[in-house]
Design a protein around this nucleic acid. Sequence first.
DNA 1: TTAAACTTTCATAAATTACTGAAACTTCAA
DNA 2: TTGAAGTTTCAGTAATTTATGAAAGTTTAA
Lengths: 185, 185
Amino acid sequence: MQLTPMLESFVMHFGEMGSRWGFNRTVGQIVALLVVSKEAITANDIAEALSISRGNVSMGLKELQAWQLVQLQHKPGDRKEYFKANGSIWDMANRVFEERRKREMDPTLSLLRDILLDKPGNDAEVFAQTKLQEIHDLLEGISKWSMELQRLGPDKLGTLMKLGSGVGKVLEFKDKLLPRPANNK
Amino acid sequence: MQLTPMLESFVMHFGEMGSRWGFNRTVGQIVALLVVSKEAITANDIAEALSISRGNVSMGLKELQAWQLVQLQHKPGDRKEYFKANGSIWDMANRVFEERRKREMDPTLSLLRDILLDKPGNDAEVFAQTKLQEIHDLLEGISKWSMELQRLGPDKLGTLMKLGSGVGKVLEFKDKLLPRPANNK
DNA sequence: TTAAACTTTCATAAATTACTGAAACTTCAA
DNA sequence: TTGAAGTTTCAGTAATTTATGAAAGTTTAA
């Protein structure tokens, strides 16, 4: 497998960005390669296209399976395993969001809840706890909201996003039209 | 400066999470320390509290200034520089979002735009470009939308988030009430 | 000016993370 | 069962990132 310059620049860029998106360079390259590949490809193809070791590919694919970003395929009469991107771009982005939410917010939320159960021992701790409470509430809000948004599905989310600055307007309607939502803290 | 066990656990946790949030351990610890400190503190206080070198603190604070997460203060008759968290938790979270958007999406958007200007050279590139276009549109959508949301300000965003699953309902209203929004691509 | 008090820089050391490749493992056809 | 075709694991090494601390830089009071 040989990449054209166009595809190579894309794949390499995803490698560079990988670490910012929560995985390492190789994993970024692999997922990029799979996304632009029409047909499913083997681990050997990947190793060759990216000039990395076979072992590295294996670990990368394992990681991507944990993220649910790749799909395994078998071809009849062929013992090799073939891989392809799992779902649409939208699906993949959703899974990345979800996974990052888990990794970036859940552990902190859990720690904050624990700490907030403790009695403050002095003045400094009293002040600190009010701050920790604020952080907790913000994280919890974002966390819950992002889960709601994902539940909306692509179509509605699309509408919501296209709404853009119109969101403000719609919110005003809501105040006038919805008598009183039942979810006050 | 000596941290109580409660504060220490919080500060250390932020250190661990730091790398997932886009900065390194030390920077995470420093920002956590500043957030729970009622009074502004000196770089030496920080080095002592976290048991890290003075130089490291200096670099960490520099980084945090780039993120606009710390504020410098001077006390009359005192030559030292004092530092405190810059703005409310909300403000700080906003800046982190903004900065991450810039780092995680902008470079990719820019690359994708470039690539999409090229003529595909073969079949594989034709397929790849449709995928790249999808990625581009999704990223652009998220990017623009998140900017809109930030423009709403805390109050409205709060309402929107509290709305939760109610968002779906409000969207239905919108379809019925807003004749036709002017922002079609 | 000088020098004391303080801060930043940066070369190098330490720590962490990622990659390789050979060995171990698995699966399947004969 | 054997061995060929394939995959995974993991110890060792390479690459990258982060931290240290001494030297250089800055600021201000006298």
